Simulated scan of single mutants.
Amino acid sequence: VIADVTDENSLIELNAGSYDTAVVAIGRNVEATMLATLQLRELGVKKVWAKALTNQHHRILERLGATRIIAPEFEMGVRISQELNYPMVHDYLGLDDDYFIVDFHTTEDLVDKTIGEVINGEPVEALVVKRMKEAHPHPDHTWTIRKGDRIVLGGRLEDLRDLVNRL
């Protein structure tokens, strides 16, 4: 549903309080974002995701009850800095503050090595090898890497950084 969420009557008419989740993605209007977040929470929406433009805006949205605050510019900046730091990393997913899943492209240096040689005792786990259009889950340590393979590893952030820096 798309509606003027600054108008409380519109939200009541839409029975917004019956929704499980609402996303407040208002452009640059900080006041409208705050008002919509407050009204949606007061109407009983359990999860309100809201876009924050500044750190102060983020703090206010937290206090108004936003359950997830999205800062697109900041989040994209973090992703770009990670990619610049680790160009072989295709994508990553943080499962909490310390455990990550990392999808990286193999380099020429890794071709014809085994997963075991690449991991080399690091406490990380090979979750999937993507070869061409096929995914091979839980490859063992004898799996030989070919040119173009993508490897998905899971582990603590510090251990993954050590491994990637060594590669």
Rank of each mutant, 00 (worst) to 15 (best):
I2A: 06
I2R: 04
D7H: 12
N9S: 14
S10R: 12
I12D: 11
L14Y: 03
N15S: 03
A16S: 14
A16T: 00
T21L: 15
A22C: 14
V23W: 05
V24W: 02
I26K: 01
V30K: 12
A32M: 03
L35W: 08
L38T: 02
L40K: 08
L43C: 12
G44L: 15
K46L: 14
V48Y: 05
A50P: 01
A52L: 09
A52P: 00
T54N: 01
I60D: 12
E62C: 01
E62S: 05
G65M: 05
G65H: 04
A66F: 00
T67L: 05
I69R: 13
I69N: 13
I70F: 07
A71T: 13
A71Y: 04
P72F: 14
P72E: 15
F74G: 05
M76A: 15
I80V: 11
I80G: 07
S81G: 00
Q82P: 00
E83Y: 02
L84Q: 02
Y86N: 10
Y86F: 13
P87W: 03
M88T: 11
H90T: 11
Y92I: 10
Y92D: 09
L93G: 06
D96P: 02
D98S: 14
V102T: 15
V102G: 14
T107W: 08
T107N: 11
E108W: 04
D109G: 01
V111M: 04
T114S: 15
I115Y: 06
I119P: 03
I119H: 01
N120L: 11
V124I: 15
V128M: 10
V128E: 07
V129R: 00
V129M: 08
V129C: 12
V129G: 03
R131S: 04
E134V: 07
E134D: 10
H136C: 00
P137S: 01
D140W: 05
D140G: 08
D140P: 01
I145T: 06
R146M: 15
D149N: 11
L153Q: 09
G155F: 00
L157T: 05
R161E: 13
D162N: 13
D162L: 13
N165C: 04
